[in-house]
């Protein structure tokens, strides 16, 4: 096993770990808003690590280019998706709003 294999394996495993955590977060966290946090951050990083780990193992530069594009589009779309979901949830007043410690959108300072 070469050093590259080890690095690639570590990246893949770390990516899987973050992806699992994102899944657990979706189940354990109490409301839409906190769940969006789990769906954006660890999920994005997890995917990124998996892409990196894969990029180290593929032979052709063309495949690496595709992996880079997957990463770039995830970066561009994941926060936008989370923002739109969070915003619609807030506007339609779904559960979780009562538990806010501070809400400056409702009570401007």
């Amino acid at each position: 096993m070469s050093a590259l294999d080890v690095v690639s394996a570590v990246l893949l495993l770390a990516g899987v770990l973050f992806s699992v955590v994102a899944g657990i977060g979706l189940v354990r966290l109490p409301d839409v808003f906190s769940r969006m946090h789990a769906a954006t951050k660890p999920a994005t990083l997890g995917l990124l690590l998996i892409l990196l780990g894969t990029a180290l193992r593929v032979d052709s530069g063309g495949d690496v280019a595709k992996l880079v594009l997957v990463g770039a589009f995830t970066f561009l779309t994941a926060p936008v998706g989370a923002h739109v979901l969070g915003r619609s949830a807030y506007r339609s007043g779904v559960g979780g709003l009562d538990e806010l410690v501070v809400d400056e959108l409702r009570d401007p300072q």
Partner: peptide, 26 residues
């Protein structure tokens, strides 16, 4: 920051007792 935030959410999610003080800030 992406790494920091992922680790932070990971720790939050795996905490045995889940208690969050959520807020919306301008």
């Amino acid at each position: 920051d992406l790494v920091r935030s992922s680790v932070q959410v990971t720790l939050l999610v795996l905490r045995p007792r889940l208690q969050l003080r959520q807020a919306v800030v301008a």
